[in-house]
């Protein structure tokens, strides 16, 4: 379930709520009972390998896919039943957003903004503001077909923002952007959150997700393996302790023989990573490592608990899921 930002006294109904959403393409199950929710002013990073079902989920939310099992509520309205009522609420950037090739940047944005019900005068101001912000002011009257992929991606993002939606659904918003533009988009996501807009976005660039997301959902083979804050996900994984020696000890009983050590990870001549069994007292283990090392004539340069980044968490959960799948098949 999604992480709630607010205390129970101020809990509001979720802006977005998916319950047991399943979708098949022919015989292929693209989504298998996905459930999560998103509160107002929350940024949710949706991650998973290629083909995991991220785009399918986002398309269901945007109303592009309307035949699915389970329920989706946006701002309290069930979709696709009340699709019309939530169109103002959503801003959607599809993967590889496309525009009619004969249009100029301005013409494309103007039409889409007007269709979204933005008043012409306000729309003019917003188009100017966003084009300037994304460095596209000089491309205002340039035809779409003459723009680069990254520029079209930025236009795609702008069209999603024109009507100032309460929920932004962005499918790979950072794909194809240079580092400066990526930072710009990340800053924008933070601004949206500060204004009270919720953002649900998928990405393969996990460091970027970690930068901006309040919580993440890890999707694998159509199932949501985990969702929650990155810290909460970290806390569910076994702890790793990394030790680096300035003088390598000569153990009679090496550290890996410690009863709390479950396995040994990356090892070099002067360092090692030890995975600690679930439930062990990490402080005790650290003290024990220090004592054993000093007793064996070693000296410690660095010792600490390794907090996996999102890449590490992702790899861990995906690897676990793969192992479980293989075990199931073997049975």
């Amino acid at each position: 379930m999604g992480h709630r930002r607010y205390s129970p006294a101020t809990v509001t109904p979720p802006l977005l709520q998916l319950t047991n959403v399943a979708k098949r393409f022919g015989y292929f199950p693209a989504l298998r009972g996905v459930s999560f929710e998103l509160q107002e002013a929350q940024v949710f990073g949706y991650i998973g390998p290629n083909g995991a079902g991220k785009t399918t989920t986002l398309k269901i939310l945007a109303g592009l896919l309307h035949e699915f099992e389970g329920t989706v509520h946006i701002a309290g309205k069930e979709v696709p039943l009340h699709r019309g009522a939530v169109q103002d609420v959503i801003g959607f950037l599809p993967q590889n957003a496309g525009f009619q090739q004969w249009r100029t940047s301005e013409s494309a944005l103007r039409s889409l903004g007007l269709l979204s019900g933005v008043a012409p005068k306000v729309l003019d101001e917003r188009i100017t503001m966003w084009l300037e912000r994304f460095g596209l002011a000089d491309k205002r009257h340039v035809k779409i077909k003459k723009l680069s992929g990254g520029m079209v991606q930025k236009l795609g993002l702008i069209q999603a923002l024109l009507h100032e939606p309460k929920l932004l659904i962005l499918d790979e918003p950072l794909a194809g952007l240079d580092p400066i533009s990526r930072n710009e988009v990340k800053a924008l996501v933070r601004e949206c959150r500060a204004r009270g807009t919720s953002v649900l976005f998928s990405s393969h660039i996990l460091s970027d997700v970690e930068d901006v997301a309040d919580s993440v959902g890890i999707l694998h083979a159509g199932s949501l393996l985990k969702s929650g804050t990155i810290d909460a996900l970290r806390s569910e994984l076994p702890v790793d302790i990394e030790i680096e020696f300035s003088v390598v000890p000569t153990f009679s009983v090496p550290l890996e023989e410690h009863q709390a050590v479950e396995s040994v990870g990356k090892t070099t001549e002067q360092s090692a990573v030890y995975r600690i069994v679930d439930g062990a007292d990490v402080d005790d283990v650290l003290h024990s490592f220090v004592e054993r090392t000093l007793a064996a004539g070693g000296r410690i340069r660095r010792l600490g608990v390794v907090h996996p980044d999102l890449d590490g968490l992702y790899a861990e959960y995906i690897s676990k899921a793969d192992q479980q799948q293989r075990a199931k098949r073997a049975k």
Binding site: A62, L64, P94, L115
Partner: peptide, 12 residues
Amino acid sequence: RNVYDILIIRPI
């Protein structure tokens, strides 16, 4: 080119 993806999500 996914042109309709950004069109049909609007009130039309």
